[in-house]
Design a protein around this nucleic acid. Structure first.
Length: 570
RNA sequence: CGGGGCGUAGCGCAGCUUGGAUAGCGCACCUGCCUUGGGAGCAGGGGGUCGGUGGUUCAAAUCCACUCGCCCCGACCA
């Protein structure tokens, strides 16, 4: 394709006020433009990249037997009411009424609609299993869109859904998807991890996320390099051991104005591990006192999974409920419900608030001095010990590029998706759902592959394979060689991508500097530079975008050399 | 939703504190000349509801109130 026929509005200056590198580079290199918060226009180059990713998705989905379909984005409310999500999901769902006043919503995902059609059509075990997928727009009224195309209100998603007669079938489809996802992300040139994840309100069975490490990521993932344990920090577990027992007389101690664990620990001279941090939270039903070891942090997600939505008590609420201010709250003689983290050893003695201003109690023993429900609500820290192998854990920031969920009968039962099995018994269809965000794949690829000059696309998803750059459009020889190579290289069959080579010819009447800058910015894997200097010796230059390696080759070998360079790069 | 910041030409910004002239600069854009291996040079030119509404004032980009939008941090994020 000719540059002059393409709309590639690159920017010389870096847009201000945005952080995510992928966001900056996609704007700067003319891939996308923003319409409003969380709404993006994909320009020709951006759309080409998405389509490259989508073809990989389709190939790999078809390979595991998934069938492409397409579902409406506009949904009647009743179906979402039947599964309850019409009510459990709040402002995040776009809702509207049609002209007759019927409640409708815009699809955030398609479990409901998929289960609906399955319920209507699948009657027998003979029709199972089925795997259906689509690459379709989703709409979510995000509280805060961010990071450019990383978190938007409207986005395309590859979502597939499996329907099985039994758990074994679900296991198989789940595994097939995991394998397909590994192939997909590898083909897209991404560094990624498969991690254990929180199914959230998708269900409460097994689920995994595929995470691409990048500093622009919204999630923290916990990794063990020794055994490969990997989990989203929301669900990650670790070992931290217990400190050695020490003798501590049970008594109140005066701790004037010492409120934080650190302050009291410094003041009394005991290690933070001998403290119990007492956090007062309020759920929809009741106040709850949450205990965690002094040197540890609460994992709010884990806690929320146990007690539901909660908020931390305000100073006023604390006084009203406990009778003393935050900083001196403790578990002893407490009447409200207590949840204690397993990092607290029942045999040890601890220090915590005395429920009395300016006083703490030392020598508190969990079995003697309070009753609690023991749970895991601790947040894993860098350097904690791996629960599987004893290795040291590390934490990385990552962006979620895909997920796989076992749903079981969560959606099929409410929507009456039942089939008759071999024995003529009616059973609910077992369902799974599996998503990938192509725009996030593109963004993650940029986050992981760029330099100071611009994007370096993995060649599998680059908008073009080769860019030919004639430096002087008023030099006849330059132009004729460029045209000739453009023709010839375009005819080459690209066995890597299973199609012909896609060549971009920069036929603009621009100065060399402009063409070089733009070429580096938009990041096509191979640059073929044709200048009068080289032509004097009958040579052209082939340059790899990733390494900036370049070599001069003679014109009669140019086509072969270009193709070779393409296969050498990645 | 809480906290912070920003809205002046396509982009990046100055001007606002302390109201006053034709609202300015760099880049981009258009025309011509020139130039062609890393965002050239010269000459000429076009482009603004100063986010919006209301108010104060002889006079508002500037002061006040409200409002809309966008960005960042947090909450949230199936």
């Amino acid at each position: 394709m000719r540059y002059t026929n393409l709309f590639i509005p690159t920017m010389r200056e870096t847009p201000a006020g945005i952080n995510a590198l992928s966001h900056i580079l996609m704007l700067k290199a003319g891939y996308v433009r923003q319409l409003a918060a969380g709404l993006f226009i994909f320009l020709p180059l951006g759309w080409r990249v998405l389509n490259k990713i989508n073809s990989i998705l389709k190939e790999e989905m078809e390979r595991i037997g998934a069938q492409e379909i397409s579902m409406p984005i506009l949904h009647p409310a009743e179906i979402w009411q039947q599964t309850g999500r019409w009510y459990t999901i709040k402002e995040e769902m776009f809702r509207l009424k049609d002209r007759t006043g019927r409640d409708m919503c815009l699809g955030m995902t398609h479990e409901e609609i998929m289960a609906w059609i399955a319920a209507k059509e699948i009657k027998s075990y003979r029709q199972l299993p089925q795997v259906w997928y689509q690459i379709q727009t989703k709409l979510r009224d995000e509280a805060r869109p961010r990071g450019g195309i990383l978190r938007t209100r409207e986005f395309i998603m590859k979502d597939s859904y499996s329907f099985d007669a039994d758990e074994e079938g679900l296991d198989r489809n789940y595994k097939l998807h995991a394998e397909a996802y590994h192939r997909i992300f590898t083909r897209c040139g991404l560094k990624y991890y498969q991690v254990e994840s929180d199914p959230g309100i998708m269900g409460d069975m097994e689920s995994h996320e595929f995470m691409a490490p990048t500093s622009a990521g919204e999630d923290d993932i916990v990794l063990c390099d020794k055994c490969g344990y990997s989990a989203n920090i929301e669900v990650a577990k670790s070992n931290i051991g217990f400190p050695p027992p020490i003798n501590m007389e049970f008594k109140e101690v005066y701790t004037p104005n010492k409120k934080t664990v650190k302050e009291v620990s410094d003041f009394l001279g005991f290690d933070e591990r001998y403290f119990i941090k007492s956090l007062l939270v309020i759920t929809e039903k009741e106040p709850v006192l949450v205990l965690i070891r002094g040197d540890q942090e609460l994992n709010e997600k884990k806690l929320a999974r146990i007690i539901g939505e909660f908020s931390f008590a305000s100073p006023d609420e604390a006084i009203k409920i406990i009778g003393t201010e935050i900083g001196f709250i403790g578990p002893v003689n407490q009447k409200i419900k207590i949840l204690a983290d397993l990092s607290i050893d029942k045999n040890l003695y601890y220090i915590s608030g005395a429920n009395k201003k300016n006083y703490h109690i030392q020598g508190i023993n969990p079995t003697k001095h309070f009753d609690a429900e023991w749970v895991d609500i601790r947040k894993v820290k860098e350097g904690d010990t791996c629960i599987k192998c004893g290795g040291s854990l590390r934490i990385e920031k990552a962006i979620e590029i895909g997920n796989i969920f076992k749903l079981g009968v969560k959606y099929t039962v409410p929507l009456n998706a039942f089939f008759l099995d071999k024995d003529g018994k009616e059973k609910p269809i077992i369902m799974g759902s599996y998503g990938i965000g192509p725009a996030r794949v593109a963004a993650a690829a940029i986050e992981q592959n760029h330099d100071k000059d611009g994007i370096i696309w993995p060649k599998s998803i680059a908008p073009f394979d080769i860019e030919i750059i004639p430096l002087n459009m008023s030099d006849k020889k330059t132009v004729s060689i460029a045209e000739e190579l453009y023709e010839k290289v375009s005819e080459i069959y690209n066995s890597f991508a299973d199609r012909h080579m896609e060549v971009l010819l920069d036929d603009r009447d621009e100065r060399p500097g402009v063409k070089f800058k733009d070429a580096d910015l938009i990041g096509i894997p191979i640059q073929v530079i044709i200048g009068e200097k080289g032509l004097k010796d009958n040579k052209i230059e082939i340059k790899k975008r990733r390494t900036k390696e370049s070599k001069m080759v003679s014109i009669n070998k140019a086509v072969v050399e270009i193709v070779n360079a393409y296969y050498e790069t990645y």
